[in-house]
Design a protein around this nucleic acid. Structure first.
Lengths: 216, 216
DNA sequence: TGTACATCAGTGAACGCGCGTTCACTGATGTAC
DNA sequence: TGTACATCAGTGAACGCGCGTTCACTGATGTAC
C-alpha cells in the first residue's frame, strides 16, 4: 500500500495499485474519507516508528547523538516516501477533513520522540538553552494541549519551545527540498541539512560525539 | 483573479470565479497548463512586490529593520493568500510541469530582495555572521546558478548561504502554521514567528532598532 | 449621418474521461451434520 | 468421507458528476466608405 502516483489521490487509483477493483475497497472502508484517514494514520505511524528506531539505535546518555539520528531519519523518511510525507504535511486534500481524534495521536507520537530526548537532556544538565530560549515572551505560550492521555509527567516549557523551534527549522528545509525549490541553490541537500542540524544542536549546548550514521 | 476554493484547482472553477463560461478562457490560454503557469507567475510576482514594498518602507541603512520588515511581510502574504502560497510552495499539481524559463525569474525575484539586503549589510560591516556560517563545509556548495541574467555583481557565498538558511527557517514555520500543524502547540503564531526571526537576525549580528510595524 | 463588413470576446451544446458509489452477482472457503 | 449451507472478499455493470476541450454560433464594437 505504498506507491501510487503523486497527490493525484483517488480511490480507484489506490485500488489499481492494489490490483483490485474499486468496489472491493468498500469491504474495508465505508467512504473515501475513511480510506484517506487510514493512509494518514499509517503514514504518521510509519514515520514515528522510524524516529523511535533511530533513537533506539543510540546510547541513552548521548542526547545529541540521539537527536541527530532522529532528525536525520526524519528527513530520510520524507525523501524516501514523498507521497506519504505530502499526504501528512502538504496541501490539505480538497474535499477531505481529517478527524482529529484519529490523526492527532499518531501525529503527536513522532513529535514526542523529540520532546523526550530534549526533556532527558535538560534533566541531565547536558542541554543548556540560551537565556532567550528559556524566558519566552509572555504572549508566546508555546505549550502542549492538556490532552491528558499518556502525558505522564509534565513537559517543561523550555523543552516544548525548543521542540517546536527545532521542528519548524528542519521542516522548512525538507519541504523546500522535497518540492524542488532549492535544487538550483544547494548542491548537496543531505550535507546542508546535516550542517544546519549540527548548528541547531550546538546552539542549545548539545554537541555530537558519535560517528555519522547516514550520509547520502 | 484571486479567490477560488482550495487546491481544488480547475479551469472550470476559475472560470466560475470570473463569472464566465469555461470555453471563454481558451481565448486567453491555449491549455490548462498555460493558465496554471500564469497563476504561478502572478503569485510569485505579487509576493515579490510585497517584499520589495516592505523593504522600501525602511531606511536604507537599517539592514536589520529592512530584513525584519521583509520577513514579516513574507509570512503575512502567505497567511493572507493561502491558495496562492500553496500553489507556489505546496504540493506539485498532479498533471502539471512548470516551465522553468517562465517561473524561475519571478520566483528568484523575491529571494533577491533578501539577498540584496544581506549583501549590503555585509558590505557595510553591520552583518557579522558566525565563523561557522562563513566557512561552509567543502561539500556544501550553496551557490547561485550562473544564470547570467541581471546578476550584475556577484553575490558573496556567505550571503547566499545565509539567505538560504534564513529562507528555510521561516518557510518551516509558515508551512506548519498554514496547514494547521502547530495550532495546538503555539498560541500566537505571529509572536512566535517574530521571536524566531529576531533570534535569527541576532545570531548573524543584526539587531532591530525600529518600531514594530505589524503585530497581528 | 448611414450602411456594410470585419473583429473578436464570450456562449451553449456536446464529446470522452476518470471519478466515487451502488448493486446484484460469483465463487472460493469454512462449518454442520 | 460426503453433502448442504453460510460466509464473505471480490467482480462487473451501471449511475451521475465535474472535468478539459472542441466547435459552430452570437452579438456587441470598431472601421471603411
Amino acid at each position: 500500500m505504498a506507491e501510487y502516483g503523486t497527490a493525484g489521490l483517488s480511490l480507484r487509483g489506490i485500488a489499481r495499485e492494489l490490483d483490485v477493483t474499486a468496489p472491493a475497497l468498500y469491504n474495508y472502508y465505508a467512504r473515501l474519507d475513511d480510506l484517506i484517514t487510514a493512509l494518514i494514520v499509517d503514514a504518521y505511524t510509519a514515520l514515528a516508528e522510524v524516529l523511535e528506531a533511530a533513537d533506539a539505535g543510540q546510547p541513552r546518555a548521548r542526547h545529541a547523538d540521539r537527536l541527530m539520528a532522529v532528525l536525520l531519519a526524519y528527513r530520510e523518511w520524507a525523501m524516501a516516501h514523498p507521497v506519504d510525507f505530502s499526504l501528512i504535511y502538504g496541501n490539505p486534500i480538497p474535499g477531505y477533513r481529517a478527524p482529529a481524534e484519529a490523526t492527532t495521536p499518531p501525529a503527536r507520537r513522532g513529535f514526542a520522540v523529540i520532546l523526550a530526548i530534549l526533556a532527558e537532556a535538560l534533566a541531565s544538565g547536558e542541554l543548556q538553552p540560551q537565556p532567550e530560549h528559556l524566558h519566552q515572551p509572555p504572549d508566546l505560550h508555546v505549550r502542549l494541549p492538556s490532552a491528558g492521555e499518556t502525558q505522564a509527567e509534565p513537559v517543561p516549557p523550555a523543552v516544548i519551545y525548543l521542540g517546536v523551534m527545532g521542528w519548524t527549522r528542519i521542516h522548512g528545509m525538507i519541504m523546500l527540498e522535497l518540492f524542488n525549490h532549492t535544487d538550483t541553490l544547494v548542491d548537496n541537500h543531505a550535507a546542508f541539512y546535516r550542517h544546519e542540524v549540527e548548528s541547531l544542536l550546538r546552539s542549545i549546548g548539545l554537541s555530537i560525539t558519535g560517528e555519522p550514521t547516514h550520509d547520502t
